[in-house]
Amino acid sequence: MSEERVLTGAELEELAEKKLARGPLFYETESDHQEAMGDFYTVVAEAYKNSKQWKESGDAYCKASDWYKKSDPSDPSDPSDPSLEAGAYLKAAVSYRKCSTPYDHIHVVKILIMMSVSMENYSKAADLQKDIALVYETELDDLSTALSCYETAAEFYTTEDSPATTRGCLAKAGSIAAMLQLYESAIENFEKAAQESLMSFVTSTSFQLHCFSTGLCYLALGVIARVRTSIGRYSCVDVCFGTTREMRFLNDMMDALDAGDAEQYTTVVMEYTDKFKLDHWKTSILLEIKNGMRDEDGLM
């Protein structure tokens, strides 16, 4: 006996369209018909997924979700009982993520975020918000939108009282803002991240690094007085901050800037960067500070 041939996703989708054309004739209620259509499109999506047709799989999961939404199979007020609609959207997001359709992925994830917020599941909303922030940052090179997404994710995590994940999103937002030369925004995010550091057990090192990042942004703004004021505040919170290598680096740079000595500034930076590796945005901001000296004095 020959083995029964497995229908392809396209063939199953054609059957789904025929079932839709027949309407709810063979179902007791309209809701039963709608849920059955959702189930059938889920089968279609699985068939596409098995053949690695990710775009078609995502589209079919979205159709399934639309039908489940019409049938309203679950209680939306119960966050522990995710609806079939949400489950299908989540699978659609996974399929879209595996192909070159980032905007489809983002669209579906935004729907899931709204659903999570409506159920007051802010931890899930934050995870999803961070997911699309990463897509905007790494795939679409849209840093402005990525910045906004990371800030929103941090707000969601704060609602869930998750200082570690809140801190991570704030630090990411700060670094992106600095790359965009939005230094006031960067300072605000880094200082919030420093504050969150004080609410966890990983206090000292994390707090000091965020304060150092804030100091660099103040220097990029050309407001040395604000750097000194901030350092005073940070040292009151963490008495060890004044003895760190980051603090010494900030002081050495400020001495060079106060003296208007571009050569001294270059030497200070080179000595530090030869010993310690810096993030790309920090390297860029050090160059920006150097360019600021050139613009003011024509020394370089």
Score class of each variant (00 low, 15 high):
P82N: 04
A259E: 07
L219Q: 00
L90D: 15
Y61R: 10
Y122E: 07
S80T: 15
G9Y: 06
D238N: 13
D297R: 01
A88P: 06
T165P: 08
V117S: 02
T29G: 06
Y272K: 08
K172H: 09
K63W: 08
S123M: 12
I187A: 05
P163I: 01
T203S: 13
L128M: 12
A171W: 09
T244Q: 01
S235I: 04
E288F: 09
L250Q: 04
K130M: 10
Y136D: 02
M270A: 13
Y96F: 15
M254W: 00
E271T: 09
F156W: 11
S83H: 01
E151M: 13
T8C: 05
V223C: 09
I132S: 02
G298A: 00
C99L: 03
G260C: 04
A45W: 02
A177M: 06
S2Q: 12
H210F: 14
R233Q: 14
G9M: 09
D75N: 15
E139L: 11
A178K: 02
D252C: 00
G222N: 03
A193R: 07
A153C: 10
V223W: 01
A64V: 05
S31T: 10
C217F: 00
G23F: 03
S206P: 00
Y89M: 11
A126P: 07
V94P: 07
E17L: 10
K63E: 10
S100R: 14
V109E: 04
N291C: 06
A126Y: 04
Q129V: 05
D141M: 09
N121Q: 05
L221C: 06
P102H: 03
E246D: 15
V109A: 02
T273Q: 02
A47R: 03
T101C: 15
E263G: 01
D161G: 09
G298W: 01
H107Y: 14
E271F: 08
L170N: 02
T244R: 05
K19H: 12
C236L: 14
K110Q: 13
K69P: 05
L250H: 03
Q53Y: 05
G9Q: 08
S2T: 15
Y136V: 01
V109G: 05
A16L: 05
E246L: 05
D141E: 12
S2A: 14
V108K: 00
A225S: 14
A164F: 11
K130E: 13
A45I: 02
C62D: 08
S230R: 00
D72C: 15
E288L: 05
I111V: 07
S162H: 07
Y48V: 07
T267M: 10
D104L: 08
N189R: 04
Y157N: 04
I231Y: 06
W281R: 08
K282F: 00
M199D: 12
K98S: 10
P102V: 05
L140I: 08
D142K: 11
R22S: 12
L20S: 09
V44M: 03
Y27K: 10
A154T: 08
A92N: 01
G260R: 01
F207E: 08
D59K: 13
D238C: 12
D141N: 13
Y122I: 06
W54C: 08
P82K: 09
